[in-house]
Structure formats: C-alpha cells, structure tokens
Design a protein around this nucleic acid. Structure first.
Ligand SMILES: NC(=O)c1ccc[n+]([C@@H]2O[C@H](COP(=O)([O-])OP(=O)(O)OC[C@H]3O[C@@H](n4cnc5c(N)ncnc54)[C@H](O)[C@@H]3O)[C@@H](O)[C@H]2O)c1
Ligand SMILES: NC(=O)c1ccc[n+]([C@@H]2O[C@H](COP(=O)([O-])OP(=O)(O)OC[C@H]3O[C@@H](n4cnc5c(N)ncnc54)[C@H](O)[C@@H]3O)[C@@H](O)[C@H]2O)c1
Lengths: 231, 231
DNA sequence: CCCACTTTGTGCGTGCTTTCACAAGCACGT
DNA sequence: ACGTGCTTGTGAAAGCACGCACAAAGTGGG
C-alpha cells in the first residue's frame, strides 16, 4: 500500500486476457513439440488466431517476458503462463452424470493440457453405478460429499439432465467445491464466491444460426459483416 | 484476409446481446411450460441470471415488445426472439467424427431447442462407417461434398481429433458450409465470411483453475474478487 | 563504439458493454 | 376522466477491450 513492489505485477489480469491464455499455451506447446526455441509475437499471434498487439498486451499483464528484437522464449513462456493459470498444481475433477456426454468426457484422454485429473465419476442410476468407465468405478451420487472430501475434488463437472443440475450444483457447493463446469442447459444459482462456467451446445448453434440468417438476409446487397470467431 | 474493409457498419444487434438471446429464450420456454402468460424484466432477468437493465436493453434491440406497467407476453416474446435468431426455419447439421464425443452429440435428443436437425454423420474410420448411430447411418468422409449438397447442410460440426480438424473445416468451406462448430482443440483457419465457433473443454477448465488459484492465493487477506459467472 | 535493424511494451483514441436512474406509458380502480 | 402504481425503454456515464503506431530496448555487423 505504501511502497512499490519490485516486480510482481500481480494485479488483476483482465478476464478477456485470461480466456486467451489457454489458447496461447496450446499454440506454444505445438511450437515446443516442433522444436522451436523462440517465437515472435507476430508468429505466435498467427498461430493463436489473434492480433499481435493484443497478444503482446495480454502477455504484458504477466510481466516482461520477451526480448526486444528477438521475441519470446517458448519454454519460459509456457512455464509462466502455466503458472499464472494454476496449471503447475494438480486439480482433482469429479464428473456427475455418466450418460452419453459424461462417458465421452470420462474417456477423453487429453482432458486438459496437464494438471487436471479425473478423480471420480458419479451417477444416480443403479444401472450405471458400479460399472467401470475409463478405469474408474462409477460411484453413487449419495456419496458425493464423501468423494469430494476423500479425493480432494476442487472442480465439479455437471453432465446430468437439466432437471438435476441445480441439485447437484448445490451439493457440490455444500461440499466445498467452488469451481463448476456445467453442461446442462440451465442457469445455475450459486452463492458468491463460487465460479460457474457453462458449455452449451444449443446456444452455440443458435448463435451460428443468427449469423447465417443475417448473412442470407442481406445477400446480394453489400458485403455483410460477419462475426468471425476463430478464437 | 489482408485488406480490412471500412466496416460497412449497418444496423445490427450487438454481439453480446445475440449471445444472450438463447438464454432468454430458454428461460421463457420454461415459463411457458409452467403456464405463465406474462413476465416482467425483473423476473425474466432473474431466471436468466442477468441484470434486468441489461435484459431490457437487449430486448429493446429487437423492438418494443413489452407493455409498461405489465411486462412481456411470454408467447409473443418467444416468437420474436426465435425469429430474430433464425429458429423459425430449419437448419441442417452434419457431424464429422463419430467417436466418443460425436456419438454423444448424435444421441443428444434435445439437440437445439428447435430448428436444428441432424442430417448426416461422417467418419473416416472403416470400422465406424456403415454403422448406425442415432438412427443414422454413418457415411464415409469422402462423401462430405455430396452429403452437404444433397441434404442441404448449412451447419458443420467438427468432432474429429485435432489433427484432422483443419482439413475437415476446409472441406466444409469448400462445399459451401459457412457455419462451423468446432470441438477440436485447434484454431481453425477459414476465409472471411465463414463463421466458426468453438467449444473447448480444456480452456474452460483452465479458466476455472485460474480463478480457483487466485481465490486460494489471496485467501485470508481481503475479500477476493471472484469472476462470478452464472450465465 | 556506432549504426542499422528487429521486435517488444504501451500510450492513446475509438467503439462496444454494462449499469444507473428516471421520464414516459399503460392498466386499473374510482 | 383522472389519479395511482408499476414497469418499460433509453439517455448518459463509467468501464472495458481492441488495435494503431511508435519509442524503447535489444541484437548483430562493421
Ligand atoms: N449428449 C450431448 O451431446 C449433449 C450436448 C449438450 C448438452 N448436453 C447436456 O448434458 C447433459 C447430459 O446429457 P447426456 O446426453 O449425457 O444425457 P444422458 O441422459 O445420457 O445422461 C444423464 C446421466 O445423468 C444421470 N443422472 C440423472 N440425474 C442424476 C442425479 N440427480 N445425480 C446424478 N446423476 C444423475 C443419469 O442416470 C444419466 O446417466 C444434459 O443436461 C444435456 O442437456 C448433452
Ligand atoms: N470426448 C470428449 O469429451 C471431448 C472433450 C473435449 C474435446 N474433445 C475433442 O473432440 C474431438 C473428438 O473427441 P473424441 O473423444 O470423440 O475422439 P475419438 O477419437 O473418440 O473420435 C474421433 C473420431 O473422428 C474420426 N476421424 C478421425 N479423422 C477423421 C477425418 N479426417 N475425417 C472424419 N473423421 C475422422 C475417427 O475415426 C473417430 O471416430 C477431439 O478433437 C477432442 O480433442 C473431446
């Protein structure tokens, strides 16, 4: 509050930047696998599908990790972004609702880049409970609290039907989980301090439909503006 | 890809608004199923998890469909939003990559709210081609162009491994598909005029991890700011 | 040691988004 | 017809995000 800390620009990173860091990280890992040692903002921005000025500004929020005239050292930047995102530690994930989608998620090998470990699968259907999916035995939903506690679950994934999602979310919160990824098409109600993100297929399709219709409507007229997204 | 037109900024609904309309629509349908005839911006905003002023401003972009002192008529608003989003017409969807995820998508009954019809499933694996998934026979990827044409596919869904995604996207574009939903963890390169949206599980997890870490870091100190998302 | 060249980090203008606050509009009871 | 009460629709303000353009900083050659 009084003096100026030496270096750590650990203030707030803009939300928009946070959402892009994983994209940069992935592009960097591809470069690393290819044996590239350093990369310019221009090249990395190209690989990530963003403007180079934006990339530089994003990275500047983490600190000054580039070398003028040269670029960024790939390995070092990977480390810095990983650290900033919290990927240097392990995160335990529990998936609730082992239906079509839940099974796909459980079987998804490259789950996250690194750092994410599927610790438990839960379901309510007696038919499903007890079965083994992706080398894990499906536990009954009643044991959610116990599982969260014993496995140290910090991220909850909800892949149940819409009707059950709020109930599951509340139980997650009650059990102390403060990060939730929701695939069910409902708005979850959670207390402050709990972070919910949603993945919603049908919303994405509807947004695509909107743009497609707009394009078709104004066709023949002038060049339509398209909300080009390639984040 | 090089020149940037002076942006023929026509009239238009803000992108941020478009992304929320599907959420409002879903909330309205729940209300309709419950027999509710009219709803105030306050109540609808609550159900959609947004600020009521934002909701009103969003809806004002579509026109003046509310009645002061009363609220919005649920059925009429559903119609207006549906029309705006292009859901009054049918959209033909093709899914490429019938693996874990592709199968889950194909089997997903409530695909969109309405208006979206899965017209074709495509894969490259001879083991998968010919099998029936969700009442559809899986076609070989080589017939993509033919299928797009004969089924009038306007939206392409990519659920192949990352390495194949760009190739599939290019073929979609070549075949005339201008709306693509991509589940593979790569940045797709497409020409202007093609709309790509992505769904990326691991990015979502990484964003959750970032917030979780930030919360943990500053714990005990002052009240942490949490990016509370409950869209 | 200096100069030419490259690329970062950022100040700044612009435009989009959110939120507040309130006048205007409509229903309903009297 | 008119007042009361409620809710919409929207100016205006504040906050963010984006991208340009350039000074600063480093590299390498002579
Ligand atoms: N399948 C998809 O491609 C897809 C796409 C987008 C969204 N979604 C959404 O994801 C969710 C799951 O979809 P799905 O296709 O896997 O459905 P599903 O019916 O195949 O699976 C749901 C699973 O949840 C279990 N379940 C139900 N209530 C539960 C509870 N209270 N506690 C624990 N488990 C419970 C069921 O036993 C079942 O195994 C749905 O909300 C759906 O809308 C699915
Ligand atoms: N499974 C998940 O939960 C999940 C989650 C997030 C992201 N993803 C991503 O979604 C994609 C698919 O995941 P998955 O788990 O279903 O993988 P998968 O390996 O089970 O399925 C991929 C399918 O694509 C087919 N394929 C490969 N190349 C093809 C080509 N050129 N043309 C047509 N088909 C081709 C394969 O034959 C296979 O059937 C991957 O990119 C993955 O990273 C999956």
């Amino acid at each position: 509050m009084i003096s100026r800390p030496p270096r750590p620009r650990e203030k707030g990173i803009p939300e928009a930047t946070v959402a892009r860091l994983p994209v940069y990280l992935r592009a960097l890992q591809v470069l690393q696998d290819r044996g590239t040692a350093t990369v310019s903002s221009e090249a990395l921005a190209g690989a990530a599908g963003v403007n180079s000025a934006k990339l530089r500004k994003d990275l500047s929020h983490l600190g000054s990790y580039g070398t003028r005239g040269v670029g960024y050292e790939v390995e070092y930047l990977i480390y810095q972004i990983s650290r900033e995102l919290g990927l240097t530690q392990d995160w335990s994930v529990a998936i609730v609702g082992i239906g079509n989608l839940g099974r796909a998620l459980a079987n998804y090998g490259g789950f996250g880049t690194r750092g994410f470990r599927i610790a438990a699968l839960l379901d309510a259907d007696p038919e499903v409970v007890g079965r083994t999916v992706a080398s894990l035995e499906v536990r009954h939903i009643d044991s959610l609290e116990e599982v969260v506690h014993s496995k140290g679950v910090s991220i909850g994934v909800i892949a149940t039907p819409a009707g059950s999602a709020q109930g599951v979310a509340s139980r997650f919160v009650e059990a102390g989980v403060t990060s939730i990824l929701n695939f069910a098409p409902v708005v979850l109600n959670v207390p402050d301090g709990v972070d919910v993100r949603k993945v919603d297929l049908s919303i994405e399709l509807q947004i695509l439909a909107f743009h497609a219709q707009r394009r078709a409507d104004g066709d023949g007229r002038e060049a339509e503006r398209v909300g080009l997204e390639m984040t």
